[in-house]
Design a protein around this nucleic acid. Sequence first.
DNA 1: TTTGCCTTTCTTGTATACATGACGAGCCTG
DNA 2: CAGGCTCGTCATGTATACAAGAAAGGCAAA
Lengths: 227, 227
Amino acid sequence: MDDLSPLRSDTPGATSLADRIAEAIATGEYPPGTRLDEIELAERHGVSRTPVREALIQLGAAGLLTLRPRRGAVVTEVSARQLMEMFEVMAELEAMCARLAARRASAADQQALRAAHLGCVGAMQAGDPDAYYLRNETFHHTLYRIAHHGFLEQQALALSRRLRAYRRLQLRVRTRLSSSFAEHQALVDAVCGGDESAAAQCCREHVSVQGERFADLLASMAAERRA
Amino acid sequence: MDDLSPLRSDTPGATSLADRIAEAIATGEYPPGTRLDEIELAERHGVSRTPVREALIQLGAAGLLTLRPRRGAVVTEVSARQLMEMFEVMAELEAMCARLAARRASAADQQALRAAHLGCVGAMQAGDPDAYYLRNETFHHTLYRIAHHGFLEQQALALSRRLRAYRRLQLRVRTRLSSSFAEHQALVDAVCGGDESAAAQCCREHVSVQGERFADLLASMAAERRA
DNA sequence: TTTGCCTTTCTTGTATACATGACGAGCCTG
DNA sequence: CAGGCTCGTCATGTATACAAGAAAGGCAAA
């Protein structure tokens, strides 16, 4: 579990209130459009409204919540179009990571990427979607890290967090897993082979495909929710 | 003046407290490393500590401030390396904007970009650095807008805000103005000519050059400050 | 019955009081 | 005299009280 925002808590064990709420959003406990009541959150977490408000503001700044003055906080609803756009930017950031990784990754870095990829494969073969979700996240985070570009890593992680709830929905689409594998494999090969443009292109396609699938899924879910 | 974060205030005239503090950071009133005292800010703005804290948290999430628990908020200090990295990501985002703009910009959009460019030229010829700073900002914001990609525009604006204080320092480097002009001109031509890759490449170079110059400047300023 | 206004209630926004941890000054000791 | 420890002071973190706007429900009039 990665913590929210650069201002990381001093005590590694204790996750911040904002993190816990973000986690609840990511897991779908608070679906998009859910209105978050400050008092309820305060009681649930055993604190007063003040820290709750501060957490909500943080999440609002991160884009996970939409705060309307005097009207409370709701989990940000993103349209299919917006989601596509977010995935497009994510693709570009990851492509930049891939390009840099192909150029800069050390042998150990390459090994880490391969290991993360194998983790995905294992989870896929075990047919464990939850494990795959986590392994896949690790794989992408590994890519960000081995680009050796601190700020880019931060930005990629931030956007990745914001898309987390939607990425989780990917688990429902069974066919995505195997095709995702092939795409990861190509990326690993390109990065380890030092082929910058191939790595970048791989990434763009991989994430873009995800974006399209998610947009479809979201649209169908929205229809489902209305029914 | 653009407002901070997607949660924009309801009353257009009234700038939020966070915006005012951000402005003070951008203008250099609070240089990097400055410690912001909650009580002092509260008194200065005629409010209590609560809204001040909320503003600080917002700015912390945006990256302008670094909040350490129990140790207060300081204006984020970025190293020359970090600054370079931020400009590199900015370049990539702008390149994406340029690529999209070259593909999607309408005649009116192209006209708007040309107009913004002429504004820069006018300010440059008038020898008014402050005006140039504003016109230049408008030019870039216009580019973001005519890419017709809402989320990308948001991201670009956010990073642009974060770099604002450093962009302002550009004014000191006299020679930047004229070379900046040529770069802008090339970008305008590429976008209006619909040449995606040329537009993107232009942007990357333009912003990267800025990044390098700023890194130099920052290093010299840091040395100056220590003396 | 429906529509518009008013009132009521509830939530958010702000202020203030209190608790707690950090930093520094001063003292004691080696 | 130097170094470390302790205590005091102050800023931050949290809780609570109060103010004010928004939404919902009821009442009256058409």
